[in-house]
Design a protein around this nucleic acid. Structure first.
Lengths: 215, 215
DNA sequence: TGACAAACGGAGTCGCGGCTCCGTATGCTT
DNA sequence: AAGCATACGGAGCCGCGACTCCGTTTGTCA
């Protein structure tokens, strides 16, 4: 068997890794994915080489940042599943997610542009979407969410909220909140002009993504 | 005064310009703005140099294509202003616009990512947004559209529809239609949880865009 | 039909941004 | 304190895609 792991990393390495993550969080939140690795390095007071040693790819750095910023939302979403008022639980979680997106441009861009499903092993994004779907289904059973939306619609709406974050950034911060309010109104069970087309769940979404991705 | 214009351009030049436009329309519709100028040239059976002689910039080529594909929608939008049923006129025009976006990936990307307001002299995009705002206002006066949405919201919704086109392309064509239906439901006057924040009209939007653009 | 302006083609340039390489510095262990 | 693995820095590389330049071709007009 191969000589396994890992004595504890050197102190400066650990410190620098933390600095890089913090710099990346700031820059990505403020400038989105357009922030360059060199900028992150400068902000962290570190050379580019160091950034790439800790995060061999820009994508990996981005995902590390997203993971850190998303954990508590995932916890909240999972807790909300047992809320006695499923409609409210869904709306609260949806809104809270929107606010996270509003606070971090890079996460918004990532969710808007990709929601690219083959993410990290832990798969926080998938977990979040799964929890949100669960919340939606419960709200539907309670008659507090229109019955004809499906998990794929919810994912799409989240992606559109992420898109509205970019617009809000470019024009007016208020736009995002107004959009979320409009969407939630459109999701009420009483309006409900039946939606065209067919329902898709998260698995269908994965399958379709894989097919198109494979070209 | 300077020697003014323009004897008629050479026959091959005219022919090539047309070929380039047509190739660009096909490629941009199918692959979005990711289609490269070299591809357009190849598809047109022409050298890159020729493309750049007729359209000195990729952006100018894109805008020429958009202008061609958008004219008839603008005419329809303007005609709809005099429709006796303003609610229906708004919804029909909104839907028709969404379908145009669904048919042309590049236009969708352009509307989603930029809706960058300083466009060509004719300013087709502005004209379209103006007409759509007018339609919305009339629908509101007739009590067929919630009173608290404003022109900026409508522009944002269009941009989000454009975004949903990308998702539809990547996952399932049905997603766009479902999104449009959801949004139109959210715009009905009877639901109307009041929207947060303040109203913005198109001029505000221009002003804000200019301020941010100037950094 | 000759001559010349107009147009063509496409190899090459250029800027950008992600990433690598390697000579130097530094923390840890003995 | 010496030695070595680990980590650092940042100049430079490389691929990509928009755009240019110039030698060649072609339409037009006298």
């Amino acid at each position: 068997m191969t000589q396994a792991s890992a004595r504890r990393p050197r102190a400066d390495a650990q410190r620098n890794r933390e600095r890089v993550l913090e710099a990346a969080e700031h820059l990505f939140a403020a400038m989105g994915l357009a922030a360059q690795t060199d900028d992150v390095a400068r902000e962290a007071g570190v050379g580019v080489g160091t950034v790439y040693r800790h995060f061999p790819t820009k994508r990996l750095l981005v995902e590390a940042v997203i993971a850190r910023r998303t954990e508590s939302l995932l916890a909240a979403a999972r807790a909300a599943i047992h809320d006695p008022d499923p409609g409210e639980a869904f709306r609260r979680t949806f809104t809270r997610g929107a606010e996270l997106l509003g606070r971090n441009r890079a996460i918004a861009e990532d969710v808007a542009g990709g929601m690219n499903l083959p993410a990290l092993p832990p798969g926080i994004k998938q977990a979040l979407f799964a929890a949100l779907s669960e919340l939606a289904t419960r709200a539907q059973s309670a008659g507090q969410l229109r019955a004809d939306v499906c998990p794929a619609d919810v994912v799409m709406l989240v992606s559109c909220v992420a898109h509205s974050v970019e617009l809000a950034h470019r024009f007016d911060p208020g736009l995002r909140r107004r959009f979320v309010a409009l969407v939630l109104d459109g999701l009420r069970p009483d309006v409900a002009t039946p939606l065209p087309g067919h329902r898709l769940d998260l698995d269908d979404l994965h399958r379709l993504a894989a097919r198109r991705g494979g070209h």
